[in-house]
Simulated scan of single mutants.
Amino acid sequence: MTTSEKLTQMVIAVALFFGVMALILLITQRLRSRNGERVQAAAFLGPAMLLISIGLLYPAIATAWQSLHGAGPFDPPFVGLDNYKNLFTNSQQLTVLRNTLFWVVLTPIVSTAIGLIYAVLVDRAKFEKFAKALLFLPMAISMVGASIIWKFVYAYKSSSTGDTVEQIGLLNQFLTWLHLPTYNFLLNDPWNTFFLIVILIWIQAGFAMTILSASIKAIPDDIVEAARLDGVGGWKMFRHITVPSIRPSLIVVLTTITIATLKVFDIVQTATGGNFNTSVLAYEFYRQDFVAGNQGLATAIAVVIFLLVTPIVIYNVRQMRKLEAR
């Protein structure tokens, strides 16, 4: 498709949008009563609700229905809840759930803690901008790129003769310099999962630091000065003034990183390919659907991910509404 054809399609789409809006206004402009306003609101919301139904609601229902069927590309048999039973009883799938739990618990907590502590320590320091840029830098790298970088950090070279081998992996080279035995960081289960989690923490800590640093700077100076006049400082200032004041931002950061962690795929795919018991739910969905061809189990995993994300989103929305109501 040429550039001119793309521009033509874009112009047509914009024209259609304005045409639909003009048609709605033309039809509803004479409705001045309360019921008329409701009809007008429904007329404007109708197209959006239709698109949401087609793009979100129908696929969600279709996915849930497909999760009740077995494997097979054509007319798979109805198996009821067998896919969910397999997901929570099969030893391989239990390992996937265990790994996902490790990711979801450790990544948000550690990333947020590092970002918060870092933001507090460098706040109003002379080198603040430079220090923040260093921690934020990994955010500019894609997860695939970050995973490749850390694969070099974790790289391992074995020696069959027992002689010392020059390592290309940074961590193993440090171990060699210290005359300690080298270690295959991405092979040994379950520690390899924790080493993969480090990659996402490295990326997300900069995001947490940026949001929390902005919140810390937004704390009113009179509150801080009043606390200092009362003799509050150090740990007490952090505990009783800083953390309560930035609580909404902490919730946003934790929930955002948690949702991102539930969808983590790139790191596992790039670093280990899901081997050595490092697979997580998002990667297992890909493997079951596109590699094993088991769409029933794959869609069951998708439904579980959706169910795990939903309460987090609802909680986040409620917290935002409480803040708006204040």
Rank of each mutant, 00 (worst) to 15 (best):
F88K: 05
Y118R: 03
V104A: 14
I109F: 13
Y118W: 07
D123A: 11
T107Y: 13
V104I: 09
F88M: 07
L116S: 10
W103A: 14
Y84L: 14
R98P: 00
W103D: 10
W103T: 06
T100R: 01
L106Q: 04
Q93Y: 14
L121D: 03
V110S: 10
T107A: 15
D123C: 07
I117T: 10
Y118I: 00
V96D: 03
V105Y: 01
F130H: 04
A119D: 03
L94H: 07
V105Q: 01
N90L: 03
K85W: 15
R124H: 11
N99L: 10
D123R: 14
T112V: 15
A113K: 00
P108A: 10
D123T: 09
F102S: 12
P108G: 07
L97K: 09
N99F: 09
L121R: 06
A119F: 08
T95D: 14
N90A: 12
K126V: 09
A119N: 08
L101R: 02
N90T: 04
A113R: 00
N99H: 07
K85S: 14
K85M: 13
Y118L: 04
K85V: 15
V120M: 09
V105H: 01
R98T: 14
G115Y: 02
T100S: 15
T95I: 14
K126G: 03
T107F: 10
T107G: 11
L101F: 15
E128N: 05
K132A: 11
A113H: 01
K132F: 12
I114R: 02
I109M: 07
V104E: 04
Q93H: 12
R124Q: 14
L87F: 10
K85F: 13
T107W: 12
A125D: 01
A119T: 02
V105A: 08
A131D: 00
L101K: 01
W103S: 11
K129T: 11
L106K: 00
V110Q: 02
L94S: 08
F130A: 08
A125V: 05
S91P: 10
V110K: 00
Q93G: 01
S91V: 09
W103R: 05
L101C: 09
V122F: 03
V105T: 08
L101Y: 08
Q93K: 13
A119M: 01
T95K: 12
I117Q: 05
A125G: 08
L87K: 01
F130E: 02
G115E: 01
P108N: 03
Q93C: 08
A125N: 05
